[in-house]
Amino acid sequence: MSAADLLARTAALAGRYLERLPSRPVGARADLAALRASLGGPLPARGTDPAEVLERLAADAEPGLVASAGPRYFGFVIGGSVPAALAADWLVTAWDQDAGLYACGPSVAVAEEVAAGWLLELLGLPATSSVGFVTGGQMANFTGLAAGRHAVLARAGWDVEEDGLAGAPLVNVVIGEEAHVTIVTSLRMLGLGGRRAVRVRTDGQGRMHVDELRRALASLSGPTIVCAQAGNVNTGAFDP
């Protein structure tokens, strides 16, 4: 099968899945053991025909798919992809460009630059702001906290990128009781310590109480980062 035929078959399988999405069961129908049995097995000793790989993957994975892109999915905060984004994703995968350097992929580097500018305009942020596209919520919080760590330590006269954290001023981090777990994970990875986070009591919607936040800040000294939440994953509420 040619590469063009393989991609055409892939499009047909994907199209069939999308057509059935509104009516298919939302939850997975296969359990963990069944999926491991169908998708697993010994490491193949030699390669398999690409067409066979595609067909087997589509058939074996199908019972374990969650219809998160469908209209009846209400679990977690997972948005369904729109047709234009899905098609563009296929196209850029075929291009196989590296946007890390302009020299490696001029068109995709400029596309990223344009998208960054549009986001700044949409959010009303200064045009000189830095923008980074990350893989998801975990790395978004990690990047934001890394930037915050840099800023508060720089104000204290410490270059954390060059001198590390050993001997650096202690950084306080204030979070709400319902802060997302990726905040704590990021604090651990950044050497700020998940256990050291100061937690502020929240209301029934998961929002930090302003008076409690004021008291927490008044009790702290030195470089301090406050992690406010823009959309609680359970209620959608924003911290004040």
Rank of each mutant, 00 (worst) to 15 (best):
V134D: 00
G193H: 13
L125W: 01
G206W: 09
R72S: 03
L187G: 04
V210R: 14
D211Q: 14
V184N: 04
H180M: 02
F142H: 15
G124W: 06
T135L: 09
A127I: 02
G117V: 03
A168V: 02
V152I: 08
Y102M: 09
V77H: 05
P169R: 02
W90P: 00
A111T: 01
A168K: 07
V184M: 08
A140H: 06
D96L: 10
V200D: 05
F74I: 02
Q138L: 05
R199I: 00
L192M: 14
L122E: 11
M208S: 05
G157D: 09
V184C: 01
F76K: 13
S130H: 05
P83E: 01
M139A: 08
R199H: 07
Q97N: 05
A197R: 07
E113Y: 04
H180D: 07
W158T: 11
A140C: 09
T128C: 08
N141C: 05
V92D: 00
V160D: 04
L125K: 10
F142D: 13
L123E: 14
A88R: 13
S81D: 10
G105S: 10
G79S: 13
V200K: 11
L123W: 12
A168S: 14
E177H: 14
A87T: 11
D89R: 15
V77I: 07
V210M: 01
P83T: 02
A166W: 06
Q138P: 03
R201N: 00
M139L: 10
L122Y: 06
R201E: 13
G80D: 06
